[in-house]
């Protein structure tokens, strides 16, 4: 029935991805409701980036599909109008200045220059005077600052779905804390379905209201975040 279907923003069904003999992802059923802040953890090779890549239709599935807001991601481009992501530095255009990059992203989402400028003003603290008006190309910024640009750009235009792959990695301590505050503010402002993967168990249990643990492509743990979740995760990973 249509009503039940709309409850979830993102649904993954019978999802597998294999390279030759090795299966790197195997998810029977995964549903992410609208407005959830979804945390994905796992050791290296667990399948987190694979999952995000499939969600963004950057790689093809071996079986199964992901449906985002009732749109089959692999079959239509419509999901791009409300989805935004920052996976790694291949999501930056190195020869643009941060301003040019922001305006480019803005224009792709129908946000004009003035609106982008207004938007950027709210992140002055996060930028810490190191991003705007620097007269440098993105490729000449430090990795942390490049990441800041990519992260903020994902929020331009208020997309309904935002995907961040290891956003806390490479950021300095102040920025990590500011990023957490930023994420909490965004999710409070509006209905935002946010997917984050991270190696930082502290941050991810702080920010996300649901944690899914992947190990070698399979879902091992899937629970709503409680005060005990951090300890449970630490126990799992120290085993």
């Amino acid at each position: 029935m249509p009503l039940a279907k709309n409850k979830h923003m993102i649904t993954a069904t019978s999802l597998t991805k294999s390279y030759g003999e090795t299966t790197v992802l195997n998810i029977e059923q995964l549903e992410i409701p609208k407005g959830q802040c979804f945390g994905l953890v796992g050791n290296n090779g667990a399948g987190k980036t694979t999952f995000f890549s499939i969600l963004l239709d950057l790689i093809k599935t071996s079986t199964g599909e992901i449906i985002s807001n009732d749109i089959a991601v692999a079959q239509s481009e419509e999901w791009k109008t409300f989805t935004s992501a920052f996976i790694d530095d291949s999501f930056l255009i190195g020869y643009l200045t941060p301003e040019e990059y922001f305006y480019f992203v803005g224009e792709l989402r129908g946000i004009d220059k003035a609106a982008v400028d207004l938007f950027l003003e709210t992140y002055v603290d996060f930028f810490n005077d190191e991003i705007l008006n620097q007269k440098k190309y993105l490729r000449d910024f430090s990795k942390g600052n490049q990441k800041k640009v990519g992260l903020i750009a994902t929020f331009i235009g208020n997309p309904k779905v935002v995907i961040l792959d290891e956003p806390f990695a490479n950021l300095d301590p102040t920025t990590q804390i500011r990023l957490k505050q930023l994420i909490k503010a965004e999710t409070e402002k509006r209905e935002l379905t946010l997917l984050i993967s991270s190696h930082d168990l502290n941050h991810v249990t702080d920010v996300c209201n649901r944690i899914v643990l992947l190990e070698r492509g399979a879902v091992i743990m899937d629970k709503e975040t409680t005060a005990k979740t951090l300890q449970e995760l630490e126990d799992y990973f120290s085993a």
Partner: peptide, 12 residues
């Protein structure tokens, strides 16, 4: 090619 993934995930 350096930012192809970015372009392909945008509403382009």
């Amino acid at each position: 090619s350096e930012y192809y993934a970015f372009l392909m995930s945008q509403n382009l």
